[in-house]
Structures are given as C-alpha cells and as structure tokens.
Computed example of a mutant assay.
Amino acid sequence: MAKMVTKKLSTHENLTLCGLEVDETMWHLHGNILTEYGLASNNHDRNIGNLLPLPKIHWKGQIHTTVSAEAIKFAMRRFWQEQKLSLNRTVNDENPDDIYHYKDANFNPNLYVDDDVMGYLKIEKAQKISQSNRDRETTSDDIDLQSDDSPAKEEYLPKPKGKGIPRKGALDMSRAISTTPYDRDVLHSAYGGKKDIASLHSAQFHSTHYQYCFSITPDSLKVRERIFNVLEGINSLRRVGGSNSGCLYDFSPNSLILRWTHDSCSRHLYSIDAKHDDPTCPKLLKRMQNGRIDPTEVWIAGDLAEGFEMEGVHLFENPAAAIADLKQKMCADLGIEQK
C-alpha cells in the first residue's frame, strides 16, 4: 500500500493547487459556534393540539432538534436594537400586529445595518392595466379561468403582476443543530385559575448544546465595519426562538471557531463535537494537520481552547477576547481605523 504524504500548505498554495486564482484583497470570515448546554425549548414548530413541538431533522442517521437561522437573526436584531444601532426594522413586542415596524418601505442598505447585513425583499404592487392594453395578445397565464356565469374570454384583461426586488444579505447563516439526538422529553403544565381542557398544555424540551455556522464577506457590505456588529451580536445572543419567555436558554458561545481567510469556503462547518462538556473538534484539527486549513487563520475560544494543541492557532479562554484580537487583525487587513 502506498504511503499517504501530507504537506502543510498556505491558503494561497491550496487554492492555486486547485487551479483557482487568489484575490488577496478579498477577505472572508467563517464561524462555527457552540452554545452553552441547557434545557432548550426554542423555536417551536406549529402546535399539535395542546402540544408545543420542537422542529426536528434527521442528522447523521438520528433525530435532532434544530433552531432556524431566521430565529437566530431575529435575536441578533433585538441585540442591535438594544445597542441603538440604525435599524430599518425594529421589534415591537407591545403590538403583535406590528411586531416588525418598518421605518422605510423602500429600504436603504447604506443607512440601515439590518438592510445591509441581512438583506431584504422589496415588493412592488402590480400596476392596474389600462383599457387601451386590453386588445394585446394574451396567454393562459394572463387570464382567469372562466366560470359558467362569467363574461366571454375576450372581456378579460391581462392580470396585473407585481414583482419582488431582492437584495441578498451579506450574512449567510446555517440552522442550529443539537449536538445530541432528541430524547423525547415532554413537560406537562396548565394555565392558572379554573382548569379545563384548554388550560392543559405540553411542551417538548431537549437538554443539549446547539451548533451553528456563519460566513460573511466584508466587501459584500455597503459599510464594511458592520462585520464587527455581527461578531458582537453573536457573542451576546439570548432569547432565540422563544417569544413567551417560557424557557431561558443561553445562546451565547460556549466555544467558537473563527477563520479569517482569502478562502471563500469555510471547510469546517459543524466541526465541533460535544455531548455535555469538554467539546472537541477532530474534523478541524485533521484539516489543519493535512494542510487543507492554515492554522494561522484560525481563532479558537471558550471551552474548546482548553488543552487544544496546534501550532499557529490563536487560542483564548474568553470568546470576547478572541473577537477583540481578531478585530485588530481585520482592521489592519481591511485598512479600517480601529476605534
């Protein structure tokens, strides 16, 4: 059997080996986050009678619970609102009919952080078609189906069509997936006061960590400094997917992996293994050892950094300290004056 030979390569050498041209002015930030361990009842699925179910997926052959990327971004917007950043959409818990309050229906990614980082979809209403256009050629897609008592086909005008004008957000985020399979825990309770069949309810719970990933390219932002708002938001997430405060679950990082690189691919998505304590990342370690990821591009913090051994990796006990250190590197590479 031939001996497998590995050689550590820089990101530039790796991409060149694949026949790709490397733009050394283009930077990308890839992250892998592990939340704290806790009793989770987040981001409920649609009710089944009086049962509040957790959304679930098949993952590595077993059933795991999951939290949507939209729920994580919603919590990040709450944090930005508390920090009094310039937001187009603010959260209004006092009015369920206007929980998202829009300042500008036309959107403005230059002015608003959320329009820039998370994107938007502007809907333009259909314009009423004038009578003068009724004689143009129509297709079956343009006319309504006739009923027995409807006018003749030629009396129909083409249906006006609206359109959506999307702007993709710079922040790509994955679903959060539980690090342990769902064990079918259900807790039963009842509302106060007089009891009847409507007051009884049940909710599914899961004792676990969650793991999710993100990627963002600062050059995709109208204001590149907003990449730091993303990092600050991730470090301070709470109340993810829990609108009624029925379950306090800490979504801040127990551990994090950040990679600041010219490589547009993360190459370490869902690379953390954790059941209860002592998280590890054998997948990431292997890829640094065989040269697929340059260790000098990697920042590791939290419980994962304890006892981690790999030359060149930036290790920190505190995720906030890792973010502060990486921010200095990012400012230097992007030519941003650090505040």
Rank of each mutant, 00 (worst) to 15 (best):
K128Q: 15
K128V: 12
I129Q: 06
I129G: 08
I129E: 06
S130K: 15
S132M: 10
N133C: 15
N133A: 14
R134Q: 15
R134E: 13
R134T: 12
R136I: 15
E137T: 13
S140V: 14
S140E: 10
S140Y: 12
D141K: 15
D141P: 01
D142E: 14
D142K: 00
I143N: 00
I143K: 03
D144Y: 05
Q146V: 05
Q146E: 05
Q146D: 08
S147V: 01
S147K: 11
D148L: 02
S150T: 12
S150E: 09
S150M: 04
S150R: 00
P151Y: 01
K153Q: 09
K153H: 07
K153W: 13
K153E: 10
E154M: 05
E154I: 01
E155W: 09
L157E: 11
K159E: 07
K159R: 10
K159D: 09
K159I: 11
P160G: 05
K161D: 06
G162D: 10
K163I: 11
G164D: 15
G164N: 14
I165F: 07
I165A: 02
P166I: 13
R167L: 07
R167P: 08
K168E: 14
K168P: 00
K168F: 06
G169V: 03
G169N: 01
A170M: 09
A170T: 15
L171K: 15
D172P: 05
M173K: 07
M173W: 00
M173S: 06
M173E: 03
M173N: 10
M173T: 04
S174K: 04
S174F: 01
S174E: 02
R175E: 14
R175L: 14
I177C: 09
T179W: 07
T179M: 08
Y182L: 10
D183C: 03
D183A: 14
D183P: 07
R184I: 01
D185L: 13
V186P: 13
L187N: 10
H188L: 09
H188N: 10
H188G: 09
Y191C: 03
Y191D: 07
Y191V: 04
Y191K: 12
K194A: 03
K194P: 00
I197S: 15
I197L: 11
I197K: 15
A198H: 07
A198Q: 14
A198S: 09
S199L: 03
S199R: 08
S199M: 02
H201P: 00
S202V: 05
S202I: 08
A203Q: 11
A203E: 12
A203Y: 01
A203N: 12
A203V: 04
F205P: 08
F205K: 10
F205C: 03
F205M: 13
H206S: 00
